[in-house]
Design a protein around this nucleic acid. Structure first.
Lengths: 211, 211, 211, 211
DNA sequence: GATGAATGAGGATTCATTCAT
DNA sequence: GATGAATGAATCCTCATTCAT
């Protein structure tokens, strides 16, 4: 049976894993890694399941022992990749809230740094196939939901003007961030990370124009 | 696919020609209309070329007489639909610039009103197939380019803080707008148009927080 | 109604043809000429009926007024072209038979000169489409039948050794001639006409080796 | 389509591998055999890829697993079939040359015997589809090249009269042979093999007329 | 557990031909 | 007679997934 879950905790400690287990984990890792590479390079739809398998040095059937289907592989790649991001964001959300401006800057920086170190993942996130299978939408919605909650809290505290609809604003902010990250991941080196962070932070905090 | 032929006068009577022309134009119009309807309702990939044809009351071959292929139909639907939007935006760009705030509000309103009256088009614009074939990217890039120019002008006038990178900011603004419109077109009735306009305008002008 | 026949003798003399008749004959001529050109240049299968029509300056429908179908056009082109050849051959067949050697040389020369002046026709004659529709086979068979008859006559006169089967030999001779002409038409300029004539004549008369 | 992979030893038992290999080879063989049968009986163009597959007891996809496309199957059928002929001819070419007359007779006999035992192959060789895709031309050219070389050797030895162009003569000889074989394969039983051999040999050696 | 040969549903596209104007 | 928009049958090929070995 395939394991689609990220961290199936084994009963043995890592040290005690036998050869078979280690080999299986290693195979799975290779599939994820190769998949990330191929999907981000040639696009998901044009990468065949058998391509990923053979580039990973295993037979097609083996891929299906590890993942339910091609989409399952895609999902796992994105999930494992995005998880790291999410936990960073979550942690920030839980930490004692500094002043709003600092919070926004921190939030923006986390995203930009993530895009900087995972450009392949960003490209896959906006791949038509991710869109088609709703994976990217799910992730977007997740980010939107997080953002929306923050905005509602801000509204409750009177920091955010009441004329703004939190849902709309949340979609707006997330759309802004993702579009920039997507563009940036596809055009690396155009603009330094700091500029991206600075511009997005200012945009979020005070819009286009001088206060 | 027809070339945009000028009315070359033939030996036949003008009436005869016009009847044919009218019929041809009418057929094309029906294909575009039906295509918009089906594509936005069931998605582009799952709508067969023959579905569009028969729902238009013509044979498949006729579709291919008017458009190079299925993608050509999709492209034409989007192009003709977006054209209207573009000309409205272009016109605004040419008109004597009012104060920035008013310009931003007007720009936002044009987009929101357009999404309100063309929800199907918005849904198609973000269809995986439009993404895959780069059509939506082209349109996005066009909007980004327009926005970027306005920002550079604003920067030149000192209205926009110099710490902002115009390219990044343009992608951010366009991403924000499109994400909201896409969500709104897929969830009609959730929020009134005025709220969307108001929220987006505020977001663009002064960001999330009170000035 | 279309006229597929080559020489529909009109009741009027050529001088008395009215404008309409002249125009029709002219259109037909243009279709044949354009067809020969396009078919021999791009191959029959890849030349669309509408290509021939528009290159002839008429509408597709008009082509079908002159010929039953695309194959009818092809057939007419070949027939009209080959007719000339056939009549030359026929005439030779009827003329007082000189010594066999001279007859063979004359026969060979007629064919080679024809190929020289009608390379396009030769290319069409061996086009897959001509093969598929049996047109070239018909022509081949016709030539074989002519050849066979000559051989039977030769056998009767004792000029031809009795161990030779006339049918087999006829196919052999015609195959030899056509293969060379086909190759020559597709590789013009490789070898001068006289060499082709000389080689083929010798081959027919006394085979490969010195007598 | 399989690459001609060497038997890379896998971790599994040799028997297991062999079973797979045997099955794969057997499937391929069945496709070739069925293809030869159907193509020669109903013509290449009118035989659907799925016809060949189902008559071979496999699914269409399997055909495409073994051959790039329908044309690839056709090519393989001809190549594998003609290979046998070629090696026989090649062998003859290498063997100590007897007197020219005997060599020509042997060469002719090989071809005629081949046509006798592979009539289907001959019919396919001249199928319009083989012509269209240049496969038959390639094979013809190969035979011509072989013949041309022999003739040049003959010319060097002075056996062949210098007035003959080797290229033209080679085309002539091959055309003669192929035309006869093609006709004979399509009209089996008309003439016994010995007659065909005798007639062609005489024709090649000393032409139509008594020496 | 791994393998990889086999499966087969599914849709875009072409172009010779027609016939209403 | 000429036009040219409309017709629609007909087939190739892909590739995610399975399961016998």
């Amino acid at each position: 049976m395939y394991t689609d879950s990220v961290n199936t905790i084994q009963s043995n400690s890592v040290q005690n894993l036998n050869a078979r287990d280690r080999s299986r984990i290693e195979t799975r890792r290779r599939l994820l890694e190769t998949g990330l590479e191929l999907f981000s390079r040639q696009g998901v739809a044009t990468t065949r399941a058998s391509d990923v398998a053979s580039a990973s040095g295993v037979a097609v059937g083996t891929l299906y022992l590890h993942f339910k289907d091609k989409q399952g592989l895609l999902r796992a790649i994105l999930r494992e990749g995005v998880e790291e991001l999410m936990s960073a964001l979550q942690q920030m959300a839980l930490s004692p809230v500094p002043e709003p401006a600092a919070a926004v800057r921190a939030h923006t920086e986390i995203l930009v740094r993530f895009a900087e170190s995972h450009p392949g993942l960003c490209r896959i996130l906006f791949d038509p196939e991710s869109v088609r299978t709703n994976i990217s939408t799910e992730i977007t919605e997740h980010l939107v939901a997080m953002q929306e909650q923050r905005l509602r809290e801000g509204a409750a505290k009177g920091v955010i003007p009441p004329c703004m609809d939190p849902t709309v604003a949340a979609h707006g902010v997330v759309g802004m961030l993702l579009q920039v990250l997507n563009w940036w991941a596809r055009n690396p080196g155009t603009v330094p990370a700091d500029t991206v962070i600075e511009t997005l932070t200012r945009l979020r905090l005070s819009g286009l124009y001088q206060c």
